[in-house]
Design a protein around this nucleic acid. Structure first.
Lengths: 364, 364
DNA sequence: CTGAAAGCGCTTACAG
DNA sequence: CTGAAAGCGCTTACAG
């Protein structure tokens, strides 16, 4: 109603009978000692009584740097992306920064709009939490502005930290081979990048090479349609192709847990048992993976470490711009053995069981 | 590197040989006609060449109102919350506002911090997308500042729009009763609110009353631990209680889809078939619901309508503050019949099938 | 059609 | 220990 609905420094100053400058100083945290305790106390009390809150737009205008960090991600459709962003933002807040979040589905312009918003808000750095094909090109405005950009498990075109998918699939494959499987499958979405070219496939192939055995690896690619639950759908579509195959693999690794869940649901529907007829493993250790039946063997995403280290990298870029930026590096996850690969009899296992041991059962 | 890394209006003005005022005017969208096309063109070209972007902090400071809307939610743990927030933000952007998102897990202070941030940024309105027990108390600072607050499916303590859970469970129950079930169960998390007091239970009881039959309804409450996948865990824990029951219900309605999925996975593990031995239904139509086995009978959340209408309410509160705020209202979802209630033989059904018809099979 | 002045709310120097 | 002055980048009146 009133034309000036908020309380300003000047209001507090007038009420407390001091200057604006004194109020500003009194309300600051660190600055103890330069001011009489009596004045400080009186000012703070007045500010509190009036419900004063500093207006950040004014603070940002006058300070040399904002404490804003742009965060680019897709929040929808993949629960673990929201989780990753959540952890990253907590790290930022813990270091005194504030997040300016932009999710690419919020506008049809997506990344372009994100860059606009970040630059118009004078962010001091940017976290890219989402891999996209032409990232380097799309983020050019940020590079032109010489903004520090960090990749949060979004590929190695920028300094940052990510998850080692090659290692994950190396470990999954090694485990499946130890169980006796000789015909492996790999489920992957039809993508700009082919299944063979993925780091996951390279991990599988390396494990096969290291086993010194005769192993076949077949790639099962299924179309990905942009929709809610796209990964589940990829798994379900891949199952149709798998079922049509005459010489089926006995063990299938899916590129993410949700694909494995979609894959398994279609096998069930076709009367094929997991793990008795086919072993299935995923990647990511999504919460659904431990509450499905059978519970999914998978590899964790070490987001906590990834986020912490990536934010360290970002702060390094911000605070020491003259230093050579570090290389993008990857952190390995942890193999979690549950029911879906047949390591334990299904009825023994608990949904939450996290076994880290040598395989005991051997597949035919 | 340079102490003034960004281009300002003054820079553009100097380069184009006009005043700051003229640049400001030339760069505005609507203001065509008041300025010579030649000047406008030259200024815009110069601005583009220099890479000028207005600094929003300065704009906000000088304008009477910001175009910021605070959005409070939990982004993590429940994929559909991210989806809801996503839709709401798209609505906001389409109406010329910008979102200032705060997720309650980002800080231990949660809501309190959210209010702080919103007020410090001088938002013109707030969307509350997350139901929490003591909401009215926690949001008091917002009310004190006379900010328009809208509930986005977050309960009726504020004007806004939500989903009609009572109707959803009325419809689910009516369907189960038509299938012949007489012993029903309702899975609910242990909560400040008891199962009996929930609007879901009221919907079930109303459907039972309206059926004029002798129906038993038992409440299966299970502890909820704050963790990733909490709803799945509630379902799994409820299953343990269900299995220990001597006189088990033949049909169980779970408060959300994820609880149903957790519930079903434990039944499978115990060798109990769904839907042959027990019918299970959920609520929400999460993507996992259509890709599970059996695919889940459930009720949709009409988030698109909810978000659109809630944002209309918010804009009404902002633009006509003198008018009486409208009542909180609820929109019904749609019953989606899939495999888990035994309506169709499991092997006939497709994961995506959305049948809207009278039940044909009768239990038991 | 264009410009000089004032001011949004705050902080950073610099005086006293 | 406290205050008056200048200014961050922009827009809103108001002159010419």
């Amino acid at each position: 109603m009133t034309s000036k609905p908020h309380v300003t420094l000047a209001d507090v100053a007038e009420r407390a009978g001091v200057s604006v400058m004194t109020v500003s100083l009194a309300l600051r945290e660190g600055e103890v000692g330069r001011m009489s305790n009596e004045t400080r106390r009186r000012v703070r009390e007045t500010a509190k009584k009036l419900g004063y809150r500093p207006y950040v737009a004014a603070q940002r205008l006058v300070r040399r740097q904002t404490n804003l960090i742009g965060v680019m991600a897709d929040l929808v459709g993949r629960p673990w992306l929201a989780h990753k962003v959540d952890l990253a933002i907590r790290e930022l807040l813990g270091r005194g920064y504030e997040p300016l979040l932009w999710s690419n589905e919020w506008s049809s312009s997506g990344y372009e709009r994100a860059c606009d918003i970040f630059l118009s808000n004078q962010v001091t750095g940017v976290v890219v939490a989402e891999y996209a094909g032409d990232l380097a090109h799309v983020l050019k405005p940020l590079m032109d502005a010489q903004l520090p950009v960090v990749s949060l498990d979004a590929g190695g075109r920028f300094p940052g930290v990510g998850i080692d998918r090659r290692q994950a699939f190396y470990d999954l494959t090694t485990h499946l081979l130890a169980l006796g499987h000789e015909r492996l499958g790999f489920v992957w979405p039809e993508d700009p990048q082919t299944a063979e070219a993925s780091s996951r496939a390279k991990g599988m192939q390396a494990a096969i090479r290291d086993s010194d055995r005769e192993i076949t690896l077949s790639f099962i690619e299924a179309p990905r349609v942009p929709e809610q639950g796209a990964d589940l759908a990829v798994g379900a579509r891949a199952a149709a192709r798998f079922l049509a195959d005459e010489d089926r693999p006995t063990a299938v690794a899916c590129f993410v847990d949700h694909a494995a869940l979609g894959f398994i649901s279609q096998l069930h529907r076709a009367g094929i048992r997991v793990p008795q007829d086919v072993a299935v493993v995923g990647f990511g250790d999504d919460t659904e993976a431990s509450y499905s039946y059978p519970a999914l063997t998978t590899v964790t995403r070490p987001f906590a470490e990834v986020c912490e280290q990536a934010m360290d990298v970002l702060l390094g870029l911000i605070n020491e711009p003259q230093r050579e930026p570090p290389e993008y590096r990857e952190i390995p996850g942890q193999l979690i053995i549950r029911e879906s690969c047949g390591y334990r009899a299904a009825h023994e296992a608990q949904p939450d069981t996290r076994v880290q041991a040598e395989p005991a059962l051997v597949h035919p």
